[in-house]
Design a protein around this nucleic acid. Structure first.
Lengths: 250, 250
DNA sequence: CAGTGGTCTAGACCACTTG
DNA sequence: AAGTGGTCTAGACCACTGC
């Protein structure tokens, strides 16, 4: 049998997807609920396997549903962390030996792994900002409640940090900003550049992202009192795990 | 003929997609270049139509490629606007009768359409912030160089703005913030909450988004000198059209 | 072991774009 | 008119999940 004679304005798979989306957004299906599976959709709408799959793939690519092989397709869960753009970086915070991350997690446990500290040639945009060709990079991955939520890559001008505690795995109380302060280059001003896009495969892998989840890319530059850029930190956040907050005056 | 005996670790469609992605990210294929089509992939890799399509759909959902029916699949273009989170909202700016949008577009032409001004019951999160059940909402769509880039919905406590020029389509020099100032409720402090997610169908439609494009959702609350929230503006940005910048001190 | 999603083939008709 | 992507059918084998 072929397709029905007249393509009735909107494709079947879209109308199936629309119905399911409506059920999710209206709350009829809640977080973690199981959606009707491929077989159920085939029976209910009288369509072929591929068409049912196509409908489900729409919701998956919209980030509303997550497939679990051998089990079913489920409504996506969403419990973001709140990240304060300014408060978390106040000098009063890291100046007193606290980790910046304590400001974000507010009691929830977090872990750091995939730590790599390497000397590298700087990528183009980093080199432009820092004004150096060689950088030391501190890469790491942060997880909250056991789930990875952020990748981070701090770049420092090689000449500035060579042989300093900044290259040690444990940088001590207050972290790298306190150590930069010890060197007389403590950051006093920050700029953050934000983008959002779909993740690259490596990011998908490291953050364990389901399809349909964007990442937020933050490139933060720290400037010393002399106005010199001393660090560029590129962060990749799982967009489903974060709400970012910025406060400022008129 | 069925599938080849052993599924060779990574699926065929993924390996095809990986090859194309590599060609795009390495610059071998540039902005606007045409990718090999479905027929070309079928011939080159000896796969069925659906498999070639699946490979292309990966890149499309990653936002790296855009399909043009009847023509081909093309490498996605990317030229973002820069939006300053703080500078653009300084009092010195709108206080002098300039439109906030002039700070973003820096010479590029922009247009506003889809303007709707309505009195409505407030949605939950808006009502919670503003502390009112009834709001006036100013909705509009901004386009730059003829392409829609942002939707905006300004919410005001109904009691505060009833019968004021804020409900007129043209709010005059300095816009609604200057008019709030006339009423003695000029904003002096802002907070912006940012999220990123895949767009809803209505957003996809109004912003003319290709698949694989996230949106950035900004909920900005403006507070008067008395500390009272006087406006909540929910903005939906085409993530591919924007870089957001925030500056702040330690 | 039955059910589920993951991958793949081989065909079909359609609307649209381009030369 | 030829080529392209958009949609759909009808089958197949597989790995994984959960009872």
């Amino acid at each position: 049998m072929q397709q029905s004679p007249v393509p009735p304005e909107t494709p079947i798979y879209r109308r199936i997807a629309d119905g399911l989306r409506e059920a999710i957004l209206s709350g009829e299906l809640r977080d973690g609920d199981r959606l009707p599976g491929e077989n159920a959709l085939m029976a209910q709408y009288g369509v072929a396997r591929a068409t049912a799959r196509q409908a489900l793939s729409v919701l998956i690519n919209e980030g509303l549903a997550v497939p679990k092989r051998g089990s079913g397709v489920y409504v996506r869960q969403f419990r973001p962390l709140r990240r304060h753009g300014s408060r978390r970086l106040s000098h009063g915070h890291w100046g007193q030996g606290q980790a910046i991350w304590d400001a974000d997690t507010r009691g929830r446990s977090y872990t750091v792994d995939e730590v790599h500290i390497d000397r590298e040639p700087a990528e183009n945009d980093i080199a432009r900002v820092l004004g150096t060709a060689e950088v030391w990079v501190r890469r790491r991955r942060y997880s909250v409640d056991g789930r990875p939520v952020q990748l981070s890559a701090s770049h420092f001008p090689a000449a500035l940090v060579e042989g300093t505690p900044i290259l040690r795995e444990d940088t001590g109380p207050g972290g790298v900003y306190a150590r930069l302060g010890d060197l007389g280059h403590g950051p006093v001003r920050f700029t953050e550049e934000l983008r959002a896009r779909m993740p690259h495969p490596l990011e998908t892998d490291l953050l364990d992202l389901p399809a349909g989840t964007p990442v937020i890319v933050i490139m933060r530059t720290a400037y010393s009192a002399a106005g010199v850029p001393v660090e560029v930190n590129e962060m990749i956040l799982d967009a489903a795990s974060y709400v970012l907050q910025y406060d400022f005056d008129a």
